[in-house]
Design a protein around this nucleic acid. Structure first.
Lengths: 345, 345
DNA sequence: CTGAAAGCGCTTACAG
DNA sequence: CTGAAAGCGCTTACAG
């Protein structure tokens, strides 16, 4: 008879039987009351753990909730961010994960300390976080690590910190390829219109640029190197400066498509023809590079794949898998369109 | 004695007394069961709302969680959707609401019935939903209404359904203004390159176009009217057709900026100069209209404001406020840039 | 579609 | 400190 009994439902009463105590006693233990003898409490706790008992509340909360991953991003007003987000969303749909969006340009929740934000993530049942092109200190991440909340960073704006898991692209190789392409067309005076000076990805692109120049025996000219935000206005301002240089560069390698778009706009205003008077290479390879006038030669990053990889990393950490590496770097490749040509003359 | 009684505890039974029904009936309503007569349900809902009843589960969950609102959108690959989303995010940041993003182009959760999706929203503690440019039937929305989940629709792709709360813009006036602008420049052969034929907003724009023509005594030419998706490829295909019309139109009113961008691209390929050979007006007024070549004359919609208004509507319903109206329509206005000029000759 | 009755699982109050 | 008994609040099963 005993061997054919179906397993009793997991109720307080069942735990009580299991532990050899009464239901009210189990109730007290579950509710953290103090009027229970230590050894009685121990017996009950053992039974609770062995059977995996959940209160009706907990059970209702476990109706199979999908994991919720928060994506933190500074702005959606660039094709870069939207593409990364699309990758995250695609993988989220495939793996039944929900995506919470937090655009920090809008300063949400900035009044909270990292400690409070991490605690709130636990309270609200959030599973992990993906941070896109942001700067953060080890101290800001520590409260999340302590609570075992997986965080993955895409293209951090500051140098990698200890244990941080990050996803990026081969920026150095991309910068080298872009510059080599211009050199191959015959350009010798090539400007670098960069992103934020401190950004890892920007430094790698700059060093790729310098490596290509050096490989061809072209001296690096300090006055040809600029930096600023990854935004069109930086391209506009940079283009104005570059047009006043003597001797004037014949080509520009821009560290992002958004910067390159600013260059194109300023060129139009000043009646500088692209590529006849000036060649321009961008970086990112978003759809904006395809649709610009003229279509932009650009170093394409697998942005969607980067988003997917970031979410995959979060989920792996959630499952408790060990990671092979704390950094994934996906390949970039140069796409030649119509904004580059041999220099005039 | 009655006047000094302390208020009865807020139990199912109390609600039942209040509504003049039995406890099991209240239980059914609270749990979203279907076997309750509409008027009985209404009585119970009133009582629930008046007393602010919370189930034990809800009571325990009220550790002060921020409301979570889900935004459902077909794609982020258009400036339209991103702008609306920016508006939602901005108001969400200001009012301490979390935003969950669901991009349906990726078919997520499509295997679930509306009933299941609505129940899951309750289970996962979601507060409300904002649906952007989607089609849906009354039957699809009913399970959400039954569970008192506020839904607000932005620019529905099908005609408004009964109780649906929606946000939009003055499409008819905008279509009329765009067409009047072209007529004022001297155009008489004006094509309409529209969006989805069934879409409310598209129909309003089309009728605004016809109203302007008729006001100027210009006959509506059926062969000048096209429809298709709100996407650049529709603009490309439409432009090809229009260029073959005899006599050829001298201007095009496109029902969205994305369609207009396709027109500009095809014009470039065919060496048709804009605006010298053909004037083009778009609709939406996204940043793409500013950055295109040439910059696009377009009817600007307050997309961010529409996103903000949608979230405000959701929150009002959550608080149980009565809505003044089930439809908000914000003003559009024409922004003249460089894609329109008097016809040649 | 409704509700009286039975039931379920947890908690409370209190005697020992 | 423990547990039999009573109680609470919600849900289920089903007769009408």
């Amino acid at each position: 008879m005993a061997s054919n009994e179906r397993p009793a439902k997991l109720t307080l009463a069942a735990i009580a039987r299991e532990a050899g105590v009464s239901a009210p006693t189990v109730s007290k233990v579950v509710n953290g009351r103090e009027d229970v003898a230590a050894d009685t409490r121990a017996k009950v706790l053992t039974a609770l753990e062995r059977t995996g008992y959940k209160s009706p509340l907990q059970r209702k909360n476990t109706v199979w909730r999908r994991p919720v991953v928060e994506v933190v991003i500074d702005t959606l007003n660039s094709a870069y961010g939207v593409e990364v987000l699309n990758g995250v969303l695609e993988h989220a749909a495939a793996s039944d994960v929900e995506v919470l969006l937090n655009v920090t340009g809008q300063q949400r929740g900035s009044h909270l300390s990292p400690e409070q934000r991490a605690q709130r993530m636990v309270d609200e049942g959030r599973s992990g976080m993906i941070v896109v092109t942001s700067a953060f200190s080890a101290a800001e991440l520590e409260p999340f690590h302590r609570r075992q909340i997986p965080i993955v960073v895409i293209d951090p704006l500051n140098p990698p910190q200890g244990e941080v898991v990050s996803v990026g692209a081969s920026n150095w190789a991309g910068g080298k390829a872009a510059t080599a392409h211009l050199l191959g067309l015959g350009h010798r005076r090539i400007a670098f219109l960069g992103g934020p000076e401190a950004a890892e990805c920007n430094q790698a692109r700059l060093h790729g640029y310098m490596a290509a120049l050096m490989a061809d025996g072209v001296a690096v000219e300090e006055s040809y190197i600029f930096s600023g935000p990854f935004r069109p206005d930086n391209g506009v301002a940079g283009m104005k400066s570059i047009l006043q240089l003597e001797p004037r560069p014949t080509a520009i390698f821009a560290a992002s498509d958004s910067i390159a778009l600013g260059i194109l706009a300023e060129a139009r205003r000043q009646k500088i023809r692209i590529p006849e008077d000036m060649s321009v290479v961008g970086f990112d390879g978003t759809y904006q590079a395809e649709e610009s006038v003229p279509p932009l030669t650009s170093v394409s990053q697998p942005l969607q794949e980067m988003g997917r990889a970031a979410l995959r990393f979060v989920m792996r950490q959630l499952r408790g898998d060990t990671l092979d590496s704390h950094r994934v770097e996906l390949a970039t490749h140069l796409v030649v369109r119509e904004s580059t040509a041999p220099p005039a003359g």
